[in-house]
Design a protein around this nucleic acid. Sequence first.
DNA 1: GTTGATGCTTGAGACCGTCAAGCAACTCGG
DNA 2: CCGAGTTGCTTGACGGTCTCAAGCATCAAC
Lengths: 146, 146
Amino acid sequence: MTAALPQHPTKTQLLELVAALGTAQWQDFASAAARHGLTAVQAKLLGQLKGPVPMRGLATLLLCDASNVTGIVDRLEARGLVRREPDPADRRVKNVVATDEGREIIQRVRAEMQATHSALDALDEQERATLYALLERLRPGLERRA
Amino acid sequence: MTAALPQHPTKTQLLELVAALGTAQWQDFASAAARHGLTAVQAKLLGQLKGPVPMRGLATLLLCDASNVTGIVDRLEARGLVRREPDPADRRVKNVVATDEGREIIQRVRAEMQATHSALDALDEQERATLYALLERLRPGLERRA
DNA sequence: GTTGATGCTTGAGACCGTCAAGCAACTCGG
DNA sequence: CCGAGTTGCTTGACGGTCTCAAGCATCAAC
């Protein structure tokens, strides 16, 4: 008998569980990145580069000041994982592009997130679909800018 | 017609969704904390103090070096939100305790996480129970130390 | 063209995080 | 009891992350 099974968890319990899983996943990500000599923030920025993105766009994506992006890109560029390209339409803009090496590294980091992958393996296809649908419902509330 | 509805989202999609929600919640937490002059890390530490906790225990909880905890507790103590008490059983140990003001502030921060609360309001009791159960299944995989 | 907005960088300052080193106190074998 | 090893905490050095204010170049609009 599992008398402690919460049939109706409080919002607080759910909130704490989400927070705990979020930080656990972040740790997993950070340690995978560290194995390749990257910080979590650097890896996250690298992960946003599906195509050329202006510095300003990165600041918006990462919800931080533009001057912060300068430093992060500086360090990535020094390692050859990223390039700054002039924008043909607007000479103020610098577009950031991942190099081949950059793309390869971020792909490896994602693949090496062992804890996250093994956690998701605990669910079958159907359960994952249910979880995805529920989380998708949370998104609009969470991403609204206060 | 919603043809794009993923009946069976890939692990990658699910992973990215979890990551997005995790960082959104963290931002929410950080901005609630900032309204009270606290950083997210300070608020997180404060939230762990249900009773007296030794410095070493905090380092373990926060998955960081003990010397890091020293600085964070220093700043919280300077604001009077936390106290260091000697441990009666072991004179090496210093137990950290939240002051009344500290308890009050962390409670307010939690209550003021508007985005998170409104996100959870999008689900009814039954859905929350389902979500909780699914997330609980993810925990063992995620929290295993690699 | 002048005015104003926008994109990026720089510099100062605070916090977060690690590591190495150090001191105090505990523990345990002898 | 006593010395050896361990553990708990702090300090100092150093790098990364973040914000703010200031500055330069460029664009847009009148």
